[in-house]
Simulated assay, not measured.
Amino acid sequence: MSIRFVHETRPQRVRFGSGEAATALAEEVALLGAARVMVITTASAKAAADRITEGLPVALLHDDVAMHVPVEVADRARQAAAGHGADALVSIGGGSATGLAKAVALTSGLPVVAVPTTYAGSEATDMWGLTEDARKTTGTDPRVLPRAIVYDAELTTSLPVPLSVASGVNALAHCVDSMWAPRTDPVDQALAVEGIRALRTGLPMVVADPGGREGREHTLYAAYLAAVAFASAGAGLHHKICHVLGGMFGLPHAQTHAVVLPHVLEFNGPAAPAVYRRITDALGGSLPILLDSLEAPKALRELGFDESDLPSAVEAILPAVPPGNPRPVTAEDMTALLHAAWEGR
């Protein structure tokens, strides 16, 4: 069988080095020629932000950040950037901080340098998301792709183990979705498989030694690979489900991915046996066994999702099912999948 595909690599500079965030960030800001930097960070990452931005030409530090980027939060950040004459954006934190920086870049065109403190992966994609009236809208735009990423595993050591696991499983979800998403190709799948292997190695090390560098580095490296694959392959069924659950019901992003992922994998797997085999080989066995060993969250009901909301969730998910999913998705299928995820079976 001949190999034929089209793959696009997104232009982005990546710097990876533990303990080097301050130096690397200063060099990236200098390369941009920025003189009035807007730093977007979360309350939990503010101490790290203060430390690694010392000496930078910071015009303002903005910590009005919210999960799933509500449009009113995005509007306030855009106004703050304009009001302070910002000429560059630096995001320091997890996916919410990166997402807000992207929302500002989407309308202003300002360049972004991302400094992740979790394994969300948003920093490596040109995808943006905004939530309004309990509906999350996503899209892609080259303006939101950060010009550079500064990866420093030491910035993730303060992330508690349960959040580290949930965030790492979010990266795992990027890998799995990339194996059968609408635009997947052999390059995406190679990146995704390597990402799965690195997560299988890194996440148990993070659980066993939360302050250790090696496990954090493996997991952060995997998160980057996962995001690059996902940006190219596009969102599969898993992410469409999680976007609805997050946008409509305000469920926590990473934890929702951790709960839903095994159910989507077992739903799609039998219809794509070759891909399923590559995923399970890279995992070294069963995904539920790995998740159990990590004590990952298991049930949507534990995240605040009410069983009575299942019908409205199914109704919202079905139109978003991506083309080319390995098997058709009926309302009955989605109801069964979500109910199993709600119960934590």
Rank of each mutant, 00 (worst) to 15 (best):
L130S: 08
L32G: 08
G121S: 04
R345W: 03
A235G: 11
K298P: 00
T137Q: 14
T107S: 12
A45Q: 15
V329R: 06
D64P: 01
G202Q: 03
A272D: 02
A320G: 14
G234F: 12
T280F: 09
P328R: 06
H174C: 02
A173G: 05
G195A: 11
G211V: 13
S286I: 04
F249Q: 03
A190L: 12
A120T: 01
Y151G: 04
E28A: 06
M38D: 12
N170P: 07
G99D: 08
A101M: 14
K298C: 09
V275P: 03
V329L: 07
L291C: 09
L220W: 01
L337A: 00
A134S: 12
T41L: 13
P160A: 02
V275D: 04
A222I: 07
L100M: 03
M179K: 04
G236E: 06
L89G: 03
I3N: 09
T201G: 04
A226W: 10
T156W: 02
G33C: 01
A271F: 04
A45C: 15
G168S: 03
H68R: 00
E28V: 00
A80Y: 01
A74Y: 10
G95V: 01
C242R: 10
E343H: 10
T98L: 13
E295Q: 09
R200S: 04
V113W: 02
G19P: 09
G83N: 02
D309K: 14
A43L: 11
D64G: 09
A226R: 07
F230R: 08
A114Y: 01
L172I: 07
S308L: 09
R216N: 05
V104I: 15
P146Y: 05
Y151L: 07
V6F: 13
D133K: 11
L32K: 13
A208H: 11
L106G: 01
A320T: 14
M334A: 05
A21Q: 05
V39I: 14
A43H: 15
P210R: 06
M179Y: 07
L106F: 08
L294D: 08
G109M: 06
S91D: 12
P288Y: 12
R278Y: 11
L172E: 03
G95K: 05
T138K: 12
V90Q: 09
M67E: 15
I52D: 06
A101K: 15
G304S: 03
R15T: 10
A101I: 15
K102N: 09
S2Y: 11
A48F: 15
T156A: 06
S158M: 14
V69Y: 14
A173Y: 05
V65T: 10
G19S: 01
R51W: 10
D333C: 13
L220N: 08
P186Q: 12
V73S: 05
A81W: 00
P11H: 08
V104D: 03
P262C: 14
A227S: 07
V169Q: 09
H218T: 07
R200E: 07
P111Q: 00
D141C: 11
P186G: 13
A82I: 00
A198R: 11
E72R: 11
L145A: 02
A82T: 00
E295Y: 08
H7W: 02
L245F: 01
G93N: 06
